[in-house]
Design a protein around this nucleic acid. Sequence first.
DNA 1: GTGTACCGGTACTCCACCGTATCGGTACAC
DNA 2: GTGTACCGATACGGTGGAGTACCGGTACAC
Lengths: 204, 204
Amino acid sequence: MTSQAAEGPETVVASRRSKITPEREREFFDAVLEQIRECGYDSVTMEGIAASTRCSKSTLYRQWKTKPQFVAAALRASRRVRFAGIDTGSLAEDLRQAARAAGDWSGKDTRLLQALGHAVTSDQELAQALREALVHPEIAALEEMLARGVARGEVRADHPALEYIPAMMFGVLRVRPVLNGQYADADYLVRFVEAAVLPALGLA
Amino acid sequence: MTSQAAEGPETVVASRRSKITPEREREFFDAVLEQIRECGYDSVTMEGIAASTRCSKSTLYRQWKTKPQFVAAALRASRRVRFAGIDTGSLAEDLRQAARAAGDWSGKDTRLLQALGHAVTSDQELAQALREALVHPEIAALEEMLARGVARGEVRADHPALEYIPAMMFGVLRVRPVLNGQYADADYLVRFVEAAVLPALGLA
DNA sequence: GTGTACCGGTACTCCACCGTATCGGTACAC
DNA sequence: GTGTACCGATACGGTGGAGTACCGGTACAC
């Protein structure tokens, strides 16, 4: 990301400055995110990352100036939309599928969000990266679903529950570990949609 | 708590081992919880607590063996039920008042929960203390409200949304900062109850 | 008044991490 | 082939917190 200049259509090698391949970079990023999930943001050390990826601290510091910048880069690289492509033609079914999808990555992302939750309060770039990687894509996808439902006339555009649906989904996802001691799995979330989200929208 | 043996009905002094008064102890506890909210659990140091309360590290280590034990004691001492006494005779109104009450301590407790969220995964005693201090009392109070509503016949006992209400309330409370960048205030929560919680229960 | 034991202060050891510097090996450019 | 510059390894100084040890002062018990 910071180090590649893809010139040729095929060869990745094009007078680049860094010899770190994208695959290698992904190893670093995977390692740091995993260690954050395991030990928390503060406990993650550049030394630890270097050791677990068998690279040297120098290499990391050459590419990224500081730990927050490194983590932010890792987050940006891990960005992907998990609700992508859900469009069944029915809002209720869209939400059920989103719940199912959310349940599948629930553990990993919930841990990451929890572990970074406090670190972001003191680093703007990190906060931005976290939102872009884990929060905003999913929220946007949810809001698109809702917009399509409104467009189809399933829900009125001024329905008061609309603005709370993303918070409900995300919220239940995040607090389940605290309340019940286990991550929200797909089944739990689908039942939640059925029992609370759809009724709130007047769809059940 | 660890150090007092209240024998006389009035005099606190009764052949106690520690000279630390309950007021002094509360200073320590307030300081550590506040610093946790500000800087996160890992960044809080016994040295910092000692400095900010003008006591010595020795004093702290004399009373509590380790940092997690100290923090756990602080949590246990801060335990109080915030929804206590809410009983309006109507479930809808109970929930509205709970939302209002929650909004008032939202910032402080949300920050504390967030800051400790990861630390508790590696310390059982801390986890237990956190649940007893911040989570369980509120959940229990909510469940009592719901039970009363069921007893009054406002909601059927097998209503599927019932089990999700605490998670919804807590969840929205906690994720609002992530989604909107601000803590959930009383107004936001009351509107949430109105727009989503009551409809989910078939009460609006 | 005397003794005890706790308090606050400080100095200390130990340890882990940060960030930098140095160095040999080597892959790639030309 | 030769040069360049990046990689991985290691070592280094500096910092800061965890706990411990010691010490003078003092409040309370009796």
